[in-house]
Structure formats: structure tokens, C-alpha cells
Design a protein around this nucleic acid. Structure first.
Lengths: 340, 340
DNA sequence: TTGAAAGCGGTACCAT
DNA sequence: ATGGTACCGCTTTCAA
């Protein structure tokens, strides 16, 4: 309970006033020097004294104080909640961060786990970000958007399938992933198509539209579509494989390559011929899918590069009105290999 | 260039003063009510008026102003730079975030791509975090640590292999991963062991210690160890496989399961028998590794759960002196399947 | 029970 | 070329 640790820990944090004192100038001068303010001329000797004083004290400006005074920040908030859904997503995310930083934004990922839409919006709004890019982990409400806007956010950008008043939507056309897969299976002659729906929570926002896409493709061709729940473990896959023949499915879109690999292996172990008896196609074009035999067919997804999205964010911040309300973010196409 | 957009956008952000005005009370009262300050009693009618006013205006407190006044924040900074290195790491990271939020910290991931140690430390220090948990993507210097401490960070925690004055080190014993893999290969009779070193940048901080660990295991047993560069693509793997026999390697630790799967497939395609001619072992115990034939042997890594680390952070913040300087974060053991 | 006012750490206007 | 000072939004004594 000692009040005075022997460490340097209790030393107060140096402020610009401390620097000013040590350099024998005013706080204003310190600010001018450290920010290289163009509108004012400071003599070289003074500049040096200020710089040395700052260095000696280990002075670092206080971002909160600065942005409080400025009345705005350049913080872009990227809320995160669920576990990321794959390498693709991850790469995209990183590119976006990097590109935003190049545009001089401070990128802050804010963990919003366990908050519902409006609570989350409040929490974000407290940080007064200039923009919020919601990757869809938290379901934003119109009211939540309103809160953010009123707290000064110039742009609220949703990525994914949400389309909300007052936001800019960057659409990831997940339905298209399912549609092209479905069309492919129909074209190669499948009449009863299964669609793997992961049992793992948090993936609905992808799996739902993908299933719907397959349905669209099947419609009119007289092809049946059946959702097939599957957990990401061998047991679940083996169970499914054991009951496979009863279902009479001759084609399956397996959500993504990982589920596809898991299912394909289980089906093979159960003696089902791929693609002869059942054709299998995944998505994401993972390298690992090419290692199985037969090689896994897949839907390759091209995501807009992060830099592009960063520019969109920047534009939305500077002039929200000039932005189109919706913008396409990805496109997808079938890569046929040997499993279909 | 119009000064007055037709939108609600230009409306100024409501402050507690606005709420006070609307409710017909002082700013102090607003603060008391909204924070449920226990030390002061406010009449119920007043409370209601304040709450309604806040609601009506869409008032959200300004976090920066608050922490400026308070003199401290509860922000834990998690710098990020490189792409995350796998699902394991990711899960850990998410758990940590979640657990910290449960302890009422605000978790902020700050993208530090392209900043060197001291620049990064400065940038972080501007945010005045109460703690920094560096996952090792940015190489911290002693000077950088000093900057952070002086800016008020109660704890600087490094995860990984760095061990720095003034920090708490959470050790991830990557060398052990290599060592157990090496010991396993030696025990099963390998005399010339290859160690895959990914060509992809940003993985050195894992691959280096892992290689070193294999060397430790080989040492004294009279077993040779040879680094084997490999890029994460089929071409690179095939090239390597074509030249494999010249190397005369009878065992290989393939960095992780993904590289192991890639390599194993290429070796098999080149007619090399696994594990007869060369034994293969990966690490991370990915589900997908169990889908190949032979099933992939692996090093399973158990990471300390995020909650545990979060408690460590909390303790370091409250009483830095009571913390051990170093703390073990993970342990690993071989899971032998069929490839070794 | 409520209000007035000081002050957290910066920045920028206006004097000097 | 520099200094004095008001102010950003909020919390928290101290007085009334």
C-alpha cells in the first residue's frame, strides 16, 4: 500500500507547459515549433531549444487534448466482434488498414463483442470517429446510425449485405457466390443440389445469402435445393456422409473450401465417388483445396483491394453527398477443377 | 461549395451544456445524473428531465474530454502490423479482447504498419493508453518502452520472444515447438532433418526460433539440420520436391500444417514415400491436416486462454511491481499421426 | 439539491 | 518573433 513506489512510475507525464518552462518560452511557441506551424516564424535558436527540451523530457503530445481542441479527429473506427471468417477477409482487412493510414487516418479497431446495435453505436460515438466502417459483425440499426451521425461521424460505411438509411453500403454480393456455384452444378447436370450451411455461429451473414443464391440458380431449371447443416469437425462430417445416399444429392455447394474439403474426405471415406456420384464445389480458392484428389472445384472471389476502399472512405468523409449509396465490392467466378 | 448542406449533417454535436440548457439545469447536474454519481443526491424529477433531454438530443459523452479531465484512460492498446499468422493466433487475440472488455478496458487495435520501433512508440504514446500489449509485430526498443512509460502507460507487455527492460514478457516458446518436433523426428530415427522456413515475409519471428529449436534437439544426437526455404505456392513446392532426393533428408519439420500439407503433396507427386522415405510433421493441429493421406503428424500448441492474459494485464496495471517479469504463454506437444 | 468555476493539455487568435 | 489567453467538453470540488 505504499504511496511512493521506488520506481520512476509516479513521475508526472510531461506536458507542453513543462517543455515551455524548460526551454524558457511560452506554450504557444512550443506548439508552433513542434507542429511546424507555417503561419508563424520562429527563430532557429528558439526552435532548437524547444526541440531539445521536448526531447529531454520525453514529451509526447496528448492526442485527446489535441482533438478536443481541434473539434475533430481523423480516427476511422473499425468495429470487430466475431472471429474473422477466413484468410481472404483478413487480407482485405489489413490492406484497408494500411491504405487508410497512408491517407493519414488513425485506424482503430474497436472490439464490440457482446454489444447490441445501439449500445455499440453509443460506445463508438463516444470516441468521436470521423468515419465508421462496419464490417457487419454488429447489426447496426437506423437509430444507431443516427447516433453516430449526430456525434459527428461524417460517414458510416457498411460492408456486407446491410443497407441502411444514411449509410454508404459496400456490397459484398454473397448471393452471387452461391448463384455461380449453383449455375455450374446445374450446367454439369446436377438435379438435386445440397448446400452446406455451417453449424458454427456468426457465419449466417454469409451462408444465408449463399444458400439463397443457389436457390436462384436452381429455380426454373427444375432443380431441387436442400440445405445441409455441417459442423466443422470430423464427427459431424462422418455422420453426414453415413446418411448421404438417402438424400440422393448429386451435387453440393459446400459453403467454402474448408467445409468442402472436410465433406469431400468424409464422402470418399464412405465410398462415394467424387464427382461421379456427387459433385463438390467450395469457395475461396484456397491453396489447400488443390492438394486433395480430386482437386477441389471452387468459386474464386476477387475482392476490391483495400486501397480502393480506403479512397472511398476518404471521399465519403470529405464530401458524403458525392458518394453513390452503394458500391460493389467483390465479384466471383467458378474455377472448375476435378471435383465437379 | 455551398456552406449550408440541406442535410442534418452540419448540426453541431450536442454537448452536456446543450443537455443542461434543455433540461433547465447546470452542466454539473447533467454529469451527476448521467454518471449516477453516488456521492450526490439528485431528485427524481430532475433526473428524468435530464435523461429525457439527453435522449432527445442524442447526446453521447465525449470520451476524449472525459479522460482528459480524469487524467487517465482505461484504454489498452494492441498494436497490429502484419497479417495475423493463423487461426490459432486469431482465436487467442479475440479471446484477449473479449476478456479485457469484461474487465472494463477499452480495447483498441492500432495499425502500426510501416512504423519503426520508436516512431510507433510515439504514436502509441499520444493515445495515452494505460497499457500496451505488443504482440511482437513491431520491434520495441528500450527507448520506445521509456517513451511509453513516461507517457503514463502503467504496463508494457510483450508477447513473443522479446525481453526488454521495463516490460513484462509473455513468452511464447516458439523454440519449444521446433524442439519437440525435432525430438520426435530424432526418436523415430531421422538422421538428416529438414526445416521448412517460409519465404513469406513477417514470419521470421516464428520460423527463426522454431528452426533453432530443431537444432537444439538434433545437437548431441549427431543429427544434421538443414533449413529449407519454401514459398506458399505449388510451384515452389514442386521445385523443392524435384530436388528433394539430392538433399537426402529423411525427416522434415514443415513450419506449420499448411506448409506441411503443401510440401507433402508435392513430395508424394514426385514419388517420394511418406513417411517411409521422408517423415513429415507440421504444427498447429489444423483439422485439414487430418484429411490428407497419410494423416499429417503435427505439434499441437496450447495457448493460455485470453481471460488469463487479460487478468495478467489487469494486475500489471494495478500493481506493476507484483508481477513476475516473465510468464509462460503456451506449451506444445507432438500429436503423432501417420506422416511420421 | 443544485450551481459556479477551475482545470485537464493542447491550439490559434490577437497583441506586443 | 514571441507571449497572453480563450476555448474545446467534461468532472468535481466548494458554496449556496
Amino acid at each position: 500500500m505504499s504511496q511512493s513506489p521506488r520506481q520512476s512510475a509516479e513521475r508526472p507525464v510531461p506536458t507542453s507547459a513543462d517543455v515551455a518552462r524548460l526551454a524558457g518560452v511560452s506554450r504557444a511557441t512550443v506548439s508552433y515549433v513542434l507542429n511546424n506551424t507555417a503561419a508563424v516564424r520562429i527563430s532557429e535558436p528558439t526552435r532548437r531549444r524547444v526541440r531539445e527540451a521536448a526531447e529531454e523530457l520525453g514529451y509526447v503530445p496528448h492526442a485527446a487534448a489535441r482533438s478536443l481542441r481541434a473539434g475533430h479527429s481523423r480516427m476511422v473506427l473499425l468495429p470487430t466482434a466475431q472471429a474473422p471468417v477466413g484468410p481472404l477477409y483478413n487480407r482485405f482487412f489489413n490492406e484497408l488498414q494500411w491504405a487508410l493510414r497512408r491517407l493519414d487516418y488513425t485506424v482503430v479497431q474497436y472490439g464490440s463483442l457482446g454489444l447490441d446495435g445501439d449500445e455499440a453505436a453509443r460506445a463508438w460515438a463516444e470516441l468521436r470517429p470521423v468515419a465508421v466502417v462496419s464490417l457487419g459483425e454488429v447489426r447496426l440499426t437506423p437509430h444507431g446510425v443516427e447516433i453516430l451521425k449526430r456525434s459527428g461521424a461524417k460517414a458510416v460505411i457498411t460492408v456486407g449485405s446491410q443497407r441502411l438509411e444514411g449509410t454508404h453500403a459496400l456490397v459484398m454480393d454473397q448471393a452471387r457466390v452461391g448463384r455461380v456455384a449453383g449455375e455450374h452444378l446445374v450446367a454439369r447436370g446436377s438435379r438435386r443440389i445440397g448446400v452446406v450451411v455451417p453449424r458454427e455461429p456468426g457465419l449466417e451473414m454469409f451462408s444465408g445469402p449463399r444458400l439463397e443464391g443457389v436457390r436462384q440458380a436452381a429455380e426454373g431449371a427444375g432443380v431441387t435445393v436442400e440445405p445441409v447443416p455441417l459442423g466443422y469437425d470430423e464427427e459431424s462430417a462422418n455422420e453426414l456422409a453415413a446418411a448421404w445416399r438417402e438424400k440422393g444429392l448429386d451435387g453440393v455447394f459446400a459453403y467454402n473450401d474448408e467445409y468442402a474439403m472436410l465433406l469431400m474426405r468424409a464422402l470418399q471415406d464412405a465410398g462415394i465417388d467424387i464427382p461421379g456420384e456427387t459433385a463438390v464445389i467450395g469457395s475461396d480458392d484456397l491453396l489447400l483445396g488443390r492438394l486433395l484428389r480430386p482437386r477441389l472445384s471452387t468459386v474464386q472471389i476477387d475482392m476490391v483491394i483495400g486501397r480502393h476502399l480506403a479512397e472511398l472512405v476518404d471521399r465519403a468523409v470529405r464530401d458524403p453527398e458525392s458518394m453513390p449509396r452503394a458500391h460493389d465490392l467483390m465479384t466471383s467466378r467458378v474455377v472448375r477443377r476435378e471435383s465437379s
